[in-house]
Design a protein around this nucleic acid. Sequence first.
RNA 1: GGCCCCUUAGUCAAGCGGCUAAGACGUCGCCCUCUCACGGCGAAGGCAUGGGUUCGAUUCCCGUAGGGGUCACCA
Length: 561
Amino acid sequence: MNYELLADLLYPEVTETPAELEQTYPPRSLPEGAKVTRFAPSPTGFVHFGGLFPTTIGERLAHQSGGVFYLRIEDTDAKREVAGAAEGLIRTLAAYGIRFDEGAVLGEDGTVCDRGAYGPYRQSLRGPIYRVYAKQLVKEGKAYPVFTTREELEALNAADKKAELLARDWEQTQDSRREEQQRQRQFTIEDVKAHLQAGDPFVLRLLADGDPERKIPFTDLVKGKMEIPENDEDFVLLKSDGIPTYHFAHAVDDHLMGTTHVIRGEEWLPSLAKHLMLFRYLGFRPPKYLHIAQLMRLDDSGNKKKLSKRDMGANLDDYSRMGYAPACVCEYIMTLLNSNYEEWHMQNPDQPYTAFPFNIKKMSASGCLFDFHKLNDVSKNVISRMSAEEVYTQALAWAERYDPDLGRLLSADPAYAKAILSIGRGGKKPRKDFATWRDVKPYLSFFYDELFTVEDAYDAAFPRSDIRRALEDFLGSYDPADDTTVWFDKIKAVADRLGYASDMKAYKANPEAFPGSVADVSMFLRVAVTGRLNSPDMYAVMRILGPERVRSRIRRMIDSL
RNA sequence: GGCCCCUUAGUCAAGCGGCUAAGACGUCGCCCUCUCACGGCGAAGGCAUGGGUUCGAUUCCCGUAGGGGUCACCA
């Protein structure tokens, strides 16, 4: 077989050689040990929550080492591509504070364009580049064309599907596949010419020289040492539309773009032998790999399952909708990625997570289950450390998008809203009321007359007359100018006059001796003023509500009793 | 079904041949306290299993089981 001739027949338009092409993409000049990583999503929808793992790892590794982190769009499957997905992807990532040094970016007109010297960063734009290497492989007898009609192909796939259902036929299917492969390898230049003449489409397949009986030793940076069987499958390099498969694009792009570390899900492990083979055929030095375990969820029967697209919580945008601040989600991810992160963070509470020395060695080889409890806890901690100003800004931004009514209330009187959000904030033991911005509304609704309702009822054990007397008594002595001590002394006095215990210690020592305590008197007030049995500190609440609201709410309660 | 990966409490996990097997979340109890929240203290709960190797295995090796992934002109 004259491979030179075959190559020219298949790709007459390709005149450039790989060597010439390489000159266009010189090695990056980076400091010693700098890592080059990328996030390479396919624009088929939203950003998957699980996608945040490799993204965060890649970003950390690159930026911690003085390297480069870039975004590459893997739009090689026109059938699955969703219009506008790439743009959405970039926006979501930006909202999560993921900073790319180069790659696909959003232009001023809102469409995707490239920034950086190693592009194009969209695979659909790299056709000529892939063809240069494809032609080279053909020249070297390492790849060959297969002319197959669409119908033949579908028949083949149908057989596969059946074999999957009836696993016992699998071996047979494999045998016929190998026979088919052998048959396809047999062709003449004349065959090719005839097909080309007829305008038949073809795919380019790699001529695999592997033997699955032999194992390749391989070291993954997360999984450690392993052995993988060699590849013997003549897998497709270029599809009949001339666009590369993931495998081929991965090898060419990551080589040309100088990727040093490839971080991807462990679902790629089975095809690793293909990639290693490709790098060898092309004379490329393979990158280092980190195959990370999938994020799991629990299915109905209690088994772990891969968190898939349809599952609740799979779409990163869902978290914004649920009111989770990106910073909280990022912190949660960090706790999962590096188990010593929390410890570090407790010692460095004021440092951003980017100051944490992220370490590959601390990563777990096994997959973890998503846990909302933990996310909420991390989230409460993050928000409790924010200033009232920051909480206000973020809560307002969320409300304006997802709860316009709340948004209007918050923006109507910023000072009032911030005063509410300041209760119990700051200091060593801040309140932790919010895990999400959605929690804000129920927390502060009673501060707004528009939202105020009496939600909780008094315990029937207390005579209405006692409650009435206590409320009236309080109104009689209430002075908004009182400081917290005087204010509380007055409540104690109300309790005394009612025959309730004003000293909690005495009351607890002998609860039978009193009809109630100052705690109950406070509760009478609390329900009247906030409409609830529970609320933040009543003194602070009354200060913020102001004497007008306080008095009118108490009077209204008295009238209703 | 073949191949590959994984396996310490409900969850996330330290551990890397000798420990009463850390810690965090969750759960429960107590304390603090005008309620809630915060905070403090405490409790329950774990090395999947069978063989080796070794004076000694959670830790090393082999098998078994369980879980996950993959087997496209999808990524």
